[in-house]
Structure formats: structure tokens, C-alpha cells
Amino acid sequence: MMSSLSHLVKQAAVGSVRLELFCRNLSSSARSSMRILQFMQSEERFIGVRVDKEHIAKLSPSFSTDVCTALANHGQERLLAEAARCLQSGDKIELSQVTLLPPVTNPDKVLCVGLNYRDHCKEVGLPLPAEPVLFSKFSSCITTSGDIPIPSVTKCIDWECELVAVIGKKAKNVKEADALDYVLGYTAANDVSARDMLGSKEQPRNGGQFLTAKALDNFCPLSFDIVTKDEILDVDNIPLSTSVNGEVRQNSNTKEMIFNVPNLIAYASSIFTLLPGDIILTGTPSGVGFGRKPPLFVKSGDVVEVAIEGVGKVVNRFL
């Protein structure tokens, strides 16, 4: 496999014609196990791909400098081919020399799904929804591991561990059977929530909508990498967890999802067009703070770690 891949890499060049041929010839198995990311170096942004735990390879800035633009201008297959070419080039940068960014920074849509885990519905005493419960965050919510200031408008910050699907190409009226063809890969998120801005069942705030409780600045921290879908053997069977100051609070599996990733893409794309770089936060399992008796929320100084097996983790200190 490696000799075959090396041969293909030698055939690939910066020019679009040869890169197009590279895209056609590079098999999905040869592209497996790639982790795509974004980073800053010398005050410039780049796309990269992980080489190992301590090194990354840099995609040419002439190709693109951010994932959303690369997908929009070149397409999913060419982005993967360029990442594979850079991975095999032998050129690498030490992680200590760069600043990692969220893997997607300016998507057209930050789509979220509420009440999508059976165990979560049970803990909050709500029936299973008959169709996906969709809401949104904004690009200004996106951050990554690091400190998050606690907004003055809330005193009840909660955690929600979520698998995120990153859309790789334009999707409209997609069939469930074809849905994963539109996924570039996956990352991890904490769908941070201001529970007091939701109100209560008896006295809901904002008309009962989720937006004001979910869309505060920095309320969508993502892990550093987009793990290409080839690396995930079964997206319907992934362990995921949350810990607060080292104590496990959520511990579940994506098999608890009511609507899985293909369901969600098919449903959402029947309503609106999903664009390259859009992200879908697919819901959270049981173990959230407000589901406890008494409720338990994040305090200043708390460190929250969300981890999804085989995908990544995001660690934030709230201040």
C-alpha cells in the first residue's frame, strides 16, 4: 500500500490537472487515518494534517488556508488528496512551533440537535422526539481547548459532550443511504449551555427556544482535528464522555442516538441546503448537570474535558 501511495504522490503536482488525476486514483483506503486541522504560524493561517503526536505537515497556502474555503473551492476529494500528498512528502513541523485553531472556523451553519439520546431524554423526563429537534449556534461560538470566560448573563453553565459531523460537500435532499458520502469527517464538541437562559417548563425564557442559551460567545469549543470518516469504523458505536475536574459526569455511546448521522443529514438536507464546512452537533447523552438532583453547574476554575473515542477531546477551563 505504501509503495503504491508513494508512486501516486510522485505523480501528483501542485497544478490542478495533475492533482485532479491524483484525486481519481487515490483510493479511500490509502487516505485512511488522516487528521486535518488548522493552525497559525508567524501570524499566518494554514491547513495541516497530523504526521504524529508531535508533528504536522502543512498544506500549500496556494491551495487554501482554511478548511471551509478549501472545500468550497476545490471539493472534498481534492482536499483529501492534497492532505495525503503533504502527509507523504516527508516535510513536517513541530507542534511546539504553531498555535492550533479550531478545525473549522467560519462555517455557514453550526447546526445542533436536541434530545437525540435515549438516555438523555430519560434523565430529563421528556418523551423521545418523533423527528430531530434542530437549533443553531453561530460561528462566533466556535473556539477550541483553552480558557472560556463565564458570561455575566448566566450563572448556570452546563456541559454537553457531542460528536460533530463535518459536511464535505453541498447536500440537498440527500437519501439516508448516501448521507455519509457528504461527510468529510468528525470532531468533538462541548455544546456549552446556559441553563438559566432556557428558563423552566413552567416559565420558559425566549419563548422556549434554545438560541439564547446556546449561542453565547465561545459556547462551541471543538477538538483540534477533523478525523476523516475512513478512520471511524462504526459511527453508531463510539464511546463518549465528559469529566469535570477529573470526575466523570457523562459516559455513554453513540448507539444511544435516536437519529444517527445519516438520519440527521437526510432530514436537515430535506429542509435546507448543507454547505461544505457546515458542522452538525449530533446531540448529547445523559449526565448533564441540570439532569442531576440537585442540578450541578460549572463554577469558575472548573476544567471540563469532553472526549470521543477515536475522534478527539476538547479541554476548557471556565473563568
Rank of each mutant, 00 (worst) to 15 (best):
M2F: 05
L5R: 11
L8T: 00
V9S: 10
V9K: 12
K10N: 10
Q11L: 15
A12V: 07
A12P: 00
A12T: 06
A13M: 08
A13K: 09
G15S: 13
L19S: 07
L21T: 10
L21G: 06
F22N: 02
R24F: 07
L26D: 00
S28Y: 10
S32W: 03
M34P: 05
M34S: 01
I36K: 07
E44L: 14
E44N: 15
E44R: 15
R45D: 03
I47Y: 03
R50A: 15
I56W: 14
T69I: 12
A70N: 12
A70L: 09
A72G: 00
H74P: 03
Q76I: 04
Q76R: 13
E77K: 13
R78F: 05
L79A: 07
A81E: 01
A84H: 06
K92N: 00
I93C: 10
I93T: 12
E94N: 12
Q97Y: 10
V98W: 07
P103T: 05
V104P: 05
P107D: 06
D108Y: 10
K109T: 07
V113H: 02
V113M: 10
G114N: 09
L115F: 11
R118P: 08
R118C: 09
K122N: 03
V124G: 06
L126E: 03
E131A: 14
V133E: 04
F135Y: 14
F135C: 14
K137A: 05
K137G: 05
F138R: 15
S139W: 01
I148F: 05
P151D: 06
K155M: 01
I157M: 15
I157R: 09
I157E: 13
E160Y: 08
E162A: 08
V164M: 08
A165Y: 03
V166A: 06
K169L: 07
K170H: 13
K175N: 01
E176S: 09
A177G: 04
D181Y: 07
Y186H: 03
T187V: 01
R195G: 07
L198D: 03
G199F: 03
G199T: 11
S200G: 01
K201N: 07
E202S: 08
Q203F: 11
P204Y: 05
R205C: 02
N206F: 15
G207M: 02
Q209G: 08
Q209K: 12
K214D: 12
N218L: 04
F219T: 02
C220A: 14
T228M: 09
D230M: 12
D230V: 05
L233M: 12
L233E: 15
D236L: 00
N237H: 10
I238S: 11
I238N: 04
S243A: 15
N245G: 13
S252L: 06
N253I: 09
T254K: 02
E256Q: 15
Y267V: 00
A268T: 09
A268G: 00
S270C: 00
L274T: 11
G277L: 07
G277V: 11
G277F: 10
L281Q: 12
L281V: 14
T282Q: 08
G283C: 01
G283W: 07
P285C: 04
S286K: 14
V288H: 02
V288P: 03
G291C: 01
R292F: 06
R292Q: 14
P294H: 00
P295E: 09
P295D: 11
L296G: 00
V298N: 06
G301I: 02
G310Q: 07
G310K: 05
G312K: 04
V314R: 09
V315F: 08
